[in-house]
Simulated scan of single mutants.
Amino acid sequence: MTIHAERLRGAGLPELTPALAQRGQPLLFATVSGAHLCGFPSRDSDVDLRGVHLLPLADLIGLREGEETQTRMWEQDGLELDLVTHDLLKFARLMLRRNGYVLEQLLSPLVVHTSGVHAQLVDLAPGVITGHHAHHYRGFARTQWELYEKTGELKPLLYTFRVLLTGIHLMRTGTVEAHLPTLLEHVTAPGYVRDLIHEKAVAEHGLAMDLDPRRVRADVDVLHEVLDDAQRDTRLPGEPTAYDALHDLVVRTRVAAA
């Protein structure tokens, strides 16, 4: 089942469902992640697809172990596509590990393929969000900032701002939002970030031009402080509350497919 085709077109993406038909394992969902999800794709950006597959029971209890993580790359309509999926059990465990990546993938509005299990995972997502997710976004931002300092490229700089704003917004609202232009409507950030988004549209590996490094560092430091404050003041719980429900969903899904 596919939905949100109009959102894919709005993001400049073609119909991607036929390309998934050749997969070996049942696909529970696939969504668009990466720069397209974050709202700053370039003309030459590849398409990052992320999702969940379901290994057969024999691959879990027999001698031949199935692949918990599967990767496939190909080209369609001039676009490079990169599909990475996890088995449902692994994905559920990642959801419980304060992993912002998997939540962004699960909740991406750019849906290529979906199912009833996908809908149930979405419903359970609020029950895995905790105040500790701030650590994920803080660490991600530091990694991207270090990459920006080494390369001077726009992409890691934009990711630095994006993940800091995502973390702040999550701590304040309990809502996962990965789209940078939308985040700029809710969280105060330097005005030049919008200009950087426009520059990024020209080339995937473009350089961040005409920026004072001291000013940018100061702006990033301020957002780190805002994230610290937002984590301290958040009303999010300290531990996931959806463990039992996720366990039941994994068991039911596996039994039904056996």
Rank of each mutant, 00 (worst) to 15 (best):
A19S: 14
A230E: 05
A189C: 09
D82N: 15
T234E: 12
V226F: 10
V255D: 11
H36L: 02
L107P: 01
R64T: 14
E80W: 05
T175M: 00
L180E: 14
D82A: 11
T253W: 06
V47S: 04
S115D: 06
R162T: 07
T182E: 10
Y243N: 03
V112C: 01
D48H: 05
Q144H: 09
P26M: 09
H4K: 12
L79P: 01
G10S: 13
A189Q: 11
W145E: 13
A141N: 12
D46N: 12
C38M: 04
F161G: 13
A256Y: 05
L107Q: 10
V111P: 03
M209T: 13
H186T: 11
H53S: 10
E149Y: 04
T166G: 05
A11Y: 09
I197D: 00
I61H: 14
L158D: 05
L83N: 07
L27K: 06
L207T: 13
D248K: 03
F29V: 02
T175I: 07
D244F: 04
Y101S: 02
S108I: 03
L13H: 06
T188I: 00
T234F: 02
R43C: 02
A189V: 07
T2G: 06
P26Y: 05
L236H: 09
S45T: 06
G206Y: 04
D87T: 01
H53C: 01
A92Q: 10
H186S: 12
E15T: 02
H224L: 14
P240K: 11
G206S: 12
I168Q: 14
